[in-house]
C-alpha cells in the first residue's frame, strides 16, 4: 500500500527576533518539530498526541503546507510540497484540508454560512452553477439544515460552529483532513456528536484523518495508529492496539496513567506535570522527567527503533527493562446487572 502522505525528517525551529536590534535573531530558538518522520495510508486515522508545546500543531500546519519546514520533506501522493510554487500549493490544498480547535476564530464573523461554504467551491471551480445545492447538501451531511444558510457564526453554538468547520473542510472533497484539537473545547455530549460525525463521514467519503489531540481516551476511540510526541520528537508510535496494550515509552505511560479513572499505580511525574528547562543537548529529551532515567539517558540521545512488533517504534534506552505496565483499564468492565441496565437504556439514544 502506498502512503497518502509521507513526512520525512521534518524540522522546524522558531527563532525569536529581537524587538530592539534589527537583524538579530536569538540563535537558540525553539525546536518545535525536530526530525519527525511518519506516513499515513489512505482511509486511516493517525493520531498525534502530546502535551501543549510538544509540536503537534506545528507538525499539522507543516502537513497542510501552511508552514514550510526548515529541513525535511512532506510528500502528498508522491508530490513534494516544499518544491511547489504558491499557485500549485493552492491547487493541491483542495486535497488537504484542516479543521481547527476554535471554530469561532476560524469562521469569518461577517460572512453568512452560505457565503462561508460557497467560497471554497468558487475558489476551486467546483459544482459550477449548482453551488447552492451543494452547500445545502453539505449542511445536511453535517447535521444542519438549509434554515441555517443565512445566519452568521455568532448565532451558532460551539458544536454547531465546529460542524460548519467540518462542512467547509469536506466541501472541496479532500482526501486528507487534519483535525487539530477539534473536540477539546467542547462539552462531552457535543464531543460525542462531533466524533460520531467524523467517523460517519470517514466511512461515507473514504477520508483519511490526522487527528491531533491531547486526550488519549478520544484518541483510543477514533484512531488506527498513534504517534506520541514530546518536545518536537516522536518518542513512540504504533498501531492503536499495540500502543494501548504495550506502551513502552515512559512518557506514553505517564500520559496513560494521567487519565482520570485509570487508577494506575504509576506515579504521576515528579514535576507535577511541568515541563522542565531543557537539559543538555545530547540526552533523552524526557530524561529529566523520567522516573526510570539512568546515566546513559542523560548522555546519549536514544534512537527511534522497532521494538518487538513490526509497527511499534520506541525511542528509549530502557525500553527492554521497564517494569510491566498495568493495562487492566482496557479490559471489558465487569458485566454487572447495573451496567447491563445502563447500556440497554443507552441503546435507546441511538
Amino acid at each position: 500500500m502506498s502512503a497518502l502522505l509521507e513526512v520525512g525528517n521534518v524540522r522546524k525551529y522558531f527563532t525569536r527576533s529581537s524587538p530592539v536590534i534589527f537583524n538579530w535573531k536569538d540563535k537558540r530558538g525553539v525546536k518545535a518539530v525536530d526530525g519527525v518522520a511518519l506516513s499515513i495510508n489512505r482511509g486511516e486515522t493517525l493520531a498525534i498526541v502530546g502535551e501543549s508545546g510538544c509540536g503537534k500543531s506545528t507538525l499539522g500546519r507543516i502537513m497542510v503546507g501552511l508552514l514550510k519546514p526548515d529541513e525535511g520533506f512532506v510528500d502528498f501522493e508522491g508530490v513534494r510540497l516544499n518544491s511547489l510554487k504558491a499557485s500549485e500549493l493552492r491547487a493541491l490544498r483542495q486535497n488537504i484540508q484542516i479543521i481547527f480547535q476554535d471554530p469561532f476564530a476560524t469562521l469569518n464573523p461577517r460572512l453568512t454560512i452560505e457565503q462561508t461554504l460557497i467560497e471554497p467551491l468558487k475558489n476551486f471551480g467546483l459544482h459550477k452553477g449548482e453551488e447552492l445545492k451543494r452547500v445545502v447538501e453539505l449542511l445536511e451531511m453535517v447535521g444542519l439544515s438549509k434554515d441555517h444558510l443565512n445566519r452568521y457564526p455568532h448565532e451558532f453554538s460551539g458544536g454547531q460552529r465546529q460542524r460548519i468547520g467540518i462542512a467547509r473542510a469536506i466541501s472541496v472533497e479532500p482526501k486528507l483532513i487534519i483535525c487539530d484539537e477539534v473536540v477539546s473545547a467542547l462539552d462531552v455530549s457535543i464531543q460525542a456528536q462531533i466524533l460520531n460525525l467524523l467517523q460517519d463521514l470517514q466511512k461515507r467519503l473514504g477520508l483519511t484523518y490526522v487527528f491531533i489531540s491531547h486526550d488519549l481516551s478520544v484518541v483510543h476511540h477514533i484512531a488506527d495508529k498513534v504517534v506520541v510526541m514530546y518536545k518536537g520528537k516522536v518518542v513512540e508510535s504504533s498501531d492503536k492496539q499495540e500502543l494501548f496494550h504495550r506502551p513502552r515509552h515512559p512518557y506514553t505511560q505517564v500520559l496513560l496513567s494521567s487519565l482520570p479513572g485509570t487508577q494506575n499505580s504509576l506515579v504521576h511525574d515528579t514535576l507535577g506535570g511541568e515541563v522542565a528547562a531543557s537539559a543538555s543537548l545530547a540526552s533523552c529529551a524526557f530524561a529529566d522527567r523520567c522516573m526510570f532515567a539512568v546515566d546513559i539517558c542523560r548522555k546519549q540521545e536514544p534512537k527511534l527503533e522497532i521494538y518487538q512488533h513490526p509497527t511499534h517504534l520506541v525511542s528509549c534506552h530502557k525500553k527492554e527493562n521497564l517494569p510491566d505496565f498495568d493495562t487492566s483499564y482496557l479490559d471489558a468492565p465487569a458485566q454487572s446487572l447495573e451496567s447491563i441496565r445502563l447500556q440497554s437504556f443507552q441503546s435507546y439514544f441511538a
Partner: peptide
C-alpha cells in the same frame, strides 16, 4: 435519561468497540 445519555457520551478506554451515545438536539 439525561444522566444516562451523558454517561454514554464519554469515550471509554476499553477494548470493546463502542460507539458513543449522542443526545440529539440542543
Amino acid at each position: 435519561p439525561y444522566t444516562i445519555g451523558l454517561l454514554g457520551a464519554i469515550p471509554q478506554l476499553s477494548d470493546l468497540k463502542t460507539s458513543l451515545v449522542t443526545i440529539k438536539g440542543q
